[in-house]
Simulated assay, not measured.
Amino acid sequence: LHNESLYKYFINNEQTSGHQSLIFGLRELNSTEIFQFCLENSSIINPSITNQPFYFTSNYELRIYTSACYYLDKNNQWKSDELIVGSLTNHYQIQCFSNHLTSFAGGFIILPAPINWNYVFTNADFMKNKTVYLTIIFVSIIYIILMIYARFNDKKDIEKLGVTPLLDNYKLDQYFYQILVFTGQRINAGTESKVHFILSGDNDETHIKTKKTKKLIFRSLGLLNYIRIWHDNSGKGSSASWFLKYIIVTDLQTMEKFHFISQRWFAVEKDDGFIERILSVASEMEKRAFFYILSKKAYHSVSDGYLWFSIFSRPP
């Protein structure tokens, strides 16, 4: 068919008002029916409806679409009252008739063409679809490798679970703190240098401690004031420097938390060149600072909420 106006049947919304569904049938007219119903002087325009099977002698395409006209009412809701979809509507444009002027919009729903499964399976051999099959095989291999990598790292995480006391802790200590160190998510943010720190409180301060794990236990210090932290720059190449985000120290008896915010490099070749800093306990205003909250929330949302990001965003 070259003329889309042929064999076109339009039903406007006045005819469909109050109906939940529409049922229609399609068949090809035989030569007798064409003579009876398609001549210009024929007074009969509706062929008979029967339950007998009919066969098509030619290939046809059937396009079904729905369209509607809407306006925005005073409550900012889309309504279609008193709007009529015109007969010039097709799958390219909508014709709307209205007795008032306001903000208008139109909507289309064009049903997708059905999948020809016979054609799909007939042309599904490897030689005709090399690119598709190779892409699927490649993606599957990458997925399997990532699953193995993720499982391997999960086992390593399980091995790291728990609290590791420092070797120089006193066996008679009865009061404990836990320290969590957060390395920044930046290129070469982790370090292989030996990190040392001194934690100071109202009652006492620790002697020099060496950080080798993320969870450390040491003796009672009282109310915490600051932490002095540095590294010996003994790592090789880019592994010598370190970007520290923040440290959280928890009193395991009262569960009170102390935040020490850094967001700085400990590197001789970056930032201000210092590898030693004194971090005071963060105030409530500092903990509510926009950039601190943003980086903390973004890190936890990405690292914990997304499967593959959580793999590659593991702390060093």
Rank of each mutant, 00 (worst) to 15 (best):
W78D: 07
L62W: 03
H196Y: 15
S140F: 03
D232H: 03
C96N: 03
S200V: 12
K156P: 01
W308C: 05
T50I: 09
N99Y: 14
D157A: 09
S313K: 02
L199R: 00
S295G: 07
F197Q: 00
L62H: 03
G235F: 02
V163I: 15
M285C: 14
Y306G: 03
H300C: 03
I248E: 11
H207N: 15
I34G: 02
K257G: 05
S239D: 08
R228M: 08
Y226G: 07
Y133S: 03
L294V: 06
T57R: 06
A289C: 11
S301F: 14
K128F: 06
I208A: 08
N41F: 02
E205K: 15
K257E: 14
I141T: 10
N116R: 07
F10Y: 09
S313M: 14
G25A: 06
D73C: 14
I84S: 14
I136F: 06
S239V: 01
S87C: 12
D73M: 09
L307R: 14
I136Y: 08
G235Y: 02
N169R: 14
K194M: 11
S283R: 02
F24R: 05
I44V: 12
G201K: 02
G107M: 05
Y65F: 07
Q253E: 15
D173F: 02
D154W: 13
I141Q: 07
N225W: 00
T32D: 07
I141L: 12
K194F: 07
A282N: 04
I293W: 08
P47Y: 00
